[in-house]
């Protein structure tokens, strides 16, 4: 069984949001909560009762479970270094994108289920931004499929090795793209501000305004998992094959740590974009990934 990646991602998910929050508090000169505070919040939510909207139907009740399950299945696909994920098959990155989309579908309709005038706003924005981010991920993975000649996460990452200077540039750009995708998918700055308290400006937070209790806990924990999952994807770029587990595990943890701190720094020093600038920003992501594609073509000597 290749449960190494699952265990590592689960571990990372425990710390991730805590580190982000800690970074932010240090940078803004506050004492701030402890690293485990987000987890404690989730644990408290798990033990609480719930308030449901009278308008809502069963969709509202099943959506968090489906969201959580979809994230979990997506995590199963992620390898760590030369250990494949629990499930690994050719073209698993397509499955990855679509299974996450399934979770998103349910979160969007559960937001609409409350009949609230705010949730719809978040739902609409979430649908729009995630559809705009979709091409970047596919170009990224397609480029690496071209570079390595494989088409599953595990094979791509284990065949990936950096040689020329262009390949470092490509790796760097890929890391940037993945960081930004992770920020968009997890509704963080500069696309969305998880700490805002104005419904009109929120995306993800406004979608879950009416969730409470166990369901809210599931959603929050799924967000942590998602962060750790993208962190693991990024880490894979640095886990070139040949490293034994005693190298790969520290590297993995280091990358997750750096990723979390980066998110914290971005959130401390950047303001959220105006809503109508977000699409441009996300389109920029697609153009970066086209650069990656060109870089890959250069590496392979297909274009001079």
């Amino acid at each position: 069984m290749n449960i190494l990646s699952l265990i590592l991602i689960l571990c990372a998910s425990l710390f991730f949001t805590g580190i982000v929050i800690r970074t932010k508090s240090i940078l803004s000169g506050r004492k701030g909560p402890g690293i485990f505070q987000p987890l404690k919040d989730i644990w408290r939510l798990f033990r609480k009762g719930a308030v449901y909207s009278q308008t809502s139907s069963y969709i509202f009740q099943i959506a968090p479970s489906i969201y959580f399950a979809s994230v979990l299945i997506a995590i199963f696909l992620i390898p760590v270094g030369n250990h494949p994920g629990i499930i690994s098959f050719r073209g698993d990155f397509i499955f990855f994108a679509y299974v996450l989309a399934l979770g998103k579908f349910f979160m969007i309709i559960s937001a609409m289920d409350t009949g609230s005038s705010f949730s719809g706003m978040g739902a609409s924005r979430e649908a729009l931004y995630s559809l705009l981010a979709e091409p970047a991920f596919f170009i990224l993975m397609g480029s690496f499929a071209l570079l390595t000649g494989y088409s599953s996460f595990y094979e791509i990452f284990s065949a990936l090795h950096f040689g020329s200077s262009i390949s470092y540039a490509v790796g760097f750009l890929a890391a940037i793209v993945l960081v930004i995708i992770a920020l968009i998918e997890n509704s963080r700055m500069p696309i969305d501000d998880p700490k805002t308290h104005l419904e009109l400006t929120m995306i993800h937070e406004v979608m879950i305004l009416d969730n409470s209790g166990f369901d809210l806990g599931l959603i929050l924990y799924a967000t942590n998992l998602k962060f750790a999952m993208y962190g693991a994807l990024i880490a894979n770029f640095f886990l070139t094959p040949g490293y034994e587990w005693y190298y790969s595990i520290p590297i993995f943890i280091g990358v997750q740590f750096v990723f979390a701190i980066t998110v914290g720094i971005i959130e401390s020093f950047m303001a959220r974009f105006r809503m109508n600038h977000n699409p441009q920003y996300i389109f920029m992501l697609t153009s970066i990934s086209i650069l990656i594609f060109l870089g890959v073509l250069l590496i392979l000597g297909k274009i001079a």
């Binding site: 033990r47 609480k48 009762g49 719930a50 308030v51 449901y52 909207s53 009278q54 308008t55 809502s56 409350t114 009949g115 609230s116 005038s117 705010f118 305004l209 009416d210 209790g213 166990f214």
Partner: peptide, 10 residues
């Protein structure tokens, strides 16, 4: 756990 049905948060 207790579950309460209330109007949507407005």
């Amino acid at each position: 756990k207790s579950s309460v049905y209330l109007p949507t948060w407005g």
